[in-house]
């Protein structure tokens, strides 16, 4: 789809990815405006319900960004988040949404460059996948064009 601009929700841990996003800004590193950041106190705070709701409300892609392995401020929030992401990916298959639209990524607070890179890569991947089937179905019902 030519003019498709995906909506991507990024749940970012306050102690790593959110700070990395801040650093990307300070370093003047560009990343797509498609990524909407939701700051969370730990990636382990992100519940399956938050992710599923994001898709229901029209997100084309979602990613959870937590600390590097072993670096979680709360010891194991990032590994718990990863297991939850895996669980939701299976649920997405049941619903009929491509599980590739959801990802878990790991960053440290100093990785501004990596943050911009992840945001760009995921945006491009979702752009290739096209609009979420939920968004298309909703648009079909309301007579709007999915974008």
């Amino acid at each position: 789809m030519k003019n498709f601009e995906p909506v991507i929700v990024a749940f970012c841990c306050h102690y790593c990815a959110y700070t990395a996003a801040d650093m990307a800004g300070s370093q003047r590193l560009p990343y797509p405006a498609n990524v909407k950041i939701v700051r969370v106190p730990c990636s382990g705070k992100v519940d399956a319900l938050h992710i599923v709701k994001a898709f229901e409300k029209g997100a084309d892609g979602v990613y959870v960004a937590g600390c590097l392995e072993g670096d979680c401020h709360f010891k194991s929030g990032n590994t718990k988040a990863a297991r939850r992401v895996e669980y939701v990916r299976k649920y997405m298959e049941e619903i009929g949404i491509e599980p590739e639209r959801l990802e878990m990524v790991y960053l440290s607070a100093g990785m501004g460059y990596r943050f911009a890179e992840v945001a760009t890569t995921i945006t491009e991947k979702i752009r290739e996948l096209g609009p979420s089937p939920i968004k298309s179905a909703t648009a079909g019902q309301t007579g709007q064009v999915a974008c």
Partner: peptide, 14 residues
């Protein structure tokens, strides 16, 4: 979770 999942799956089937 189920309400959300059901809603989306049903939407896909029109």
């Amino acid at each position: 979770l189920l309400a959300s999942g059901l809603q989306m799956a049903l939407l896909k089937s029109g």
